[in-house]
Design a protein around this nucleic acid. Structure first.
Lengths: 120, 120
DNA sequence: CGGAATCCCCAGTGATACTG
DNA sequence: CAGTATCACTGGGGATTCCG
């Protein structure tokens, strides 16, 4: 079975854009977790910290800023007596959820398949 | 490592497994690029190096070992005169492609949306 | 409560050279 | 061609502290 040996250097595959740049959308530690946590609706800063467990405030803050700048989520300041901030996914950010779910599903299958050892 | 103990106050999250662990399937530098490059078919070591551009042999080797151990791809040694090795996705690894494509699509939309905002 | 500023640290990455 | 071994380094992330 002869392989199609392609020699394209710059754009080897019909990819719409550089995968690396697109993956950067969910780059940074806990960024997927933040999106994952927001998939059920808006969450506040402390709620996100509780959801993602071992995330420091600094990193969470940085991540939220980055994700907001990327257009993945929006920041909503509630003018309450104790100031609170709500974060929620944009419509585009919401499109990432199926992707994450797909990865989760594969990770799930992979885990149980490894448990079965090698039995084809 | 402490696993997330969610309290589900306002948002019940029916997560099948820890997202972090599932995301680990594509963790490591250039791992998504390797999968992406393999989505069109089997590739050899040097082809992958050419596809992924700035990846060192060491890292690519490490990544390939990890991805093989995770059951994402398989390694096939061809007994030719110049020894060559082919890598190709497993069926489970192939399931990651739609996920990556979804991310790419969102990244794409995000880019052109940002382009409209910043560069009229 | 939310988050900005500061310091510290090490895992992961890259470059080079060597082997089969 | 397909790796492995060694070393040095960077920057992303953690803990802490202070501000609005």
């Amino acid at each position: 079975m002869p392989l199609p040996m392609r020699k394209n250097k710059g754009a080897p595959l019909p990819g719409p854009c550089s995968l690396t740049q697109c993956m950067a959308v969910i780059s940074g530690a806990w960024a997927p977790n933040v999106i994952w946590s927001l998939r059920a609706g808006a969450r506040r800063f402390s709620e996100l910290r509780a959801d993602v467990p071992p995330v420091s405030a600094k990193v969470l803050s940085t991540r939220l800023q980055e994700l907001e700048a990327r257009g993945v989520l929006i920041r909503n300041v509630m003018p309450t007596s104790p100031p609170s901030v709500e974060y929620s996914l944009t419509d585009l950010g919401r499109e990432l959820i199926p992707a994450l779910e797909a990865i989760v599903e594969v990770g799930h299958k992979l885990k149980q398949r490894q448990g079965l050892a090698s039995t084809p």
